[in-house]
Amino acid sequence: MTGAGIWRWLAPLLLGVLVLALWEWAVRALDVPVFVLPAPSAVARALVADYPLLLGSLWLTLKITLQAFVLALITGVGLAVLFAQSRTLSAALYPYAVILQVTPVVAIAPLVIIWVGYERVDLALLILAWIVAFFPILSNATLGLTAVDPNLRDLFRLNGAGRWQTLWRLQMPSALPYILAGAKVSGGLALIGAVVAEFVAGSGTASGLAWRIVESGNRLNIPRLFAALLLLSLLGILIFAALSWLQRRLLARWHESEIGRGA
């Protein structure tokens, strides 16, 4: 790693440590009440003390987010493939996909929860997170599957390629960068969807991180609220980092977006 490479990691890290130290000092020096702003040390203590509780919540949120994301990936790409096969089908279905996308998830959440039933609220959360995560994959995959080099398409036709050969050997690889870009957006949205849905579901039916935040707020246990918030951010960063890594891995040797990154 070059000096500049280390600095890219070190600079934000140092800034973080500096801000935390300032924060700690300010809270102590100004004697800020803990229910307004807890010091980083208090948050850390809450994290350690409530470790089993928070970890359980983290696990639940993670599970719903991942399930929703995978489901979005499968249904999004699957539907895009169908769209690419038939113009009529795509014309008929696309508006509904858009309606699903533009309707705020908070507005449909109560309905979905009622339909699915409070006793299966996990499923309702999954559905809601999926609705939010699904569209970027669908629209990107649809774009990618149709944005094929027309000359390559002719080459396939000239050599008598069938529909499936064209799909697997030409359209899918062409669409891969688009799908991965969509997945990066969608991974973050799945988490947001899961959190929002849990806020709406409320009242202790699901006990993911979002519920932990609501509950801690109600009890004025602000250090624990911060601890839950911290875990939520970490989860978001983790998802983003994992998807970025995958994107680099899969496109490194051939796609323009990765040129000059030293594959």
Binding site: D149, N151, L152, D154, L155, L158, R169, L170, P173, S174, L176, W254, H255
Partner: peptide, 13 residues
């Protein structure tokens, strides 16, 4: 029939 296009038209992946 073999066809060579105006551009190389290779599959980049």
């Amino acid at each position: 029939i073999g066809f060579v296009f105006q551009e190389p038209t290779l599959m980049p992946w």
